[in-house]
């Protein structure tokens, strides 16, 4: 390591980093830990670190009359389908948009990015009305469309950025060898796009999985997603913290792991390709 990396006095650095780590991790650790505590420990007046762990909260989530299964399946299905559509269409459009030379391309790009940035509260109002007309309230299709309203522009934009990074020389070489544009795309470009596709898919899935506002407004008894299950338990009087923390752990852990899997491409993804 070069000397210039040692900018900051070591003790100061360690103290600050420890503080930041503690601030960041304590709520998460406390949630996961508490989800294994019996209720008597959770509601004790003084916090306790040592206890006999129990799986009762997880067991009650998946066994009792009001099981988490339907919520979980709704979440997986709705987030999964909206991700699939966004990534497939976004990948195609991203390639086209990256390679095409037309007038007004900037305006097109601006329109795409502005749809992604639209405030959710503002999007909800007209969508609610349209969904009512089209009988899409409390349907899986309705929520999939709602999630596509932010995941599709996101996928198009991000895939365009990934394709922009790939020099067109490769396709051109393939085409000189007699490949059609489609073959060049399918057999030369696409295999190189795996990181981009996986990153886009994981981020789209996380955005959809984590949504609360759309689900709260558009879902009904048969389409509620996991965040709704959490919200319902939270608004009850006499909150069942054990159950809630178990739900929280179930919602958080897979997404944190998935997100960290694509850490290398995360900056590019979350800045919509502005930073590499």
């Amino acid at each position: 390591m070069t000397t210039s990396k040692r900018w900051i006095p070591l003790t100061f650095k360690v103290t600050l980093l420890t503080l930041l780590l503690v601030w960041t991790l304590i709520p998460i650790i406390w949630m996961v830990l508490s989800s294994f505590k019996p209720n008597s420990v959770i509601t004790a007046n003084t916090p306790r670190i040592f206890f006999t762990p129990t799986l009762e909260h997880y067991a009650s989530l998946f066994s009792s009359g009001n099981s988490l299964w339907p919520y979980l399946l709704n979440s997986l299905f709705i987030a999964g389908v909206s991700t699939l559509i966004a990534v497939v269409l976004g990948c195609m459009a991203g390639f086209g948009l990256s390679r095409i030379r037309i007038r007004g391309k900037q305006h097109l790009a601006f329109w795409i990015i502005s749809t992604r940035m639209a405030p959710i509260a503002a999007v909800i109002v007209p969508l609610y009305l349209l969904f009512r007309y089209l009988y899409l309230l409390d349907t899986h299709a309705g929520l999939i469309v709602a999630y596509l309203s932010f995941n599709l522009p996101f996928a198009i934009w991000l895939m365009t950025a990934f394709f922009d990074d790939l020099p067109p020389d490769l396709e051109e070489a393939a085409m000189i060898d007699g490949a059609t544009k489609f073959q060049a795309f399918r057999y030369v470009v696409l295999p190189l796009m795996t990181p981009g596709l996986v990153t886009t898919a994981i981020l789209c899935f996380i955005f959809a999985w984590n949504d609360y506002a759309f689900a709260q407004t558009f879902s009904g008894p048969s389409t509620q997603t996991i965040p709704i299950a959490a919200a319902q338990l939270l608004t009850q009087t006499g909150i069942d913290w054990g159950k809630l923390l178990a739900i929280g752990t179930i919602v958080v852990c897979p997404m944190a792991i998935a997100g960290l899997l694509v850490k290398r491409w995360l900056v590019q993804g979350l800045t919509l390709g502005a930073v590499k």
Binding site: N210, L234, V251, M255
Partner: peptide
């Protein structure tokens, strides 16, 4: 990696954690 975890957490769960 550890510091990044919060941004993957659903806002509704962040709110839940805050209340907890």
């Amino acid at each position: 990696s550890l510091l990044l975890i919060p941004m993957f957490i659903a806002p509704v769960i962040v709110g839940l954690l805050g209340r907890f």
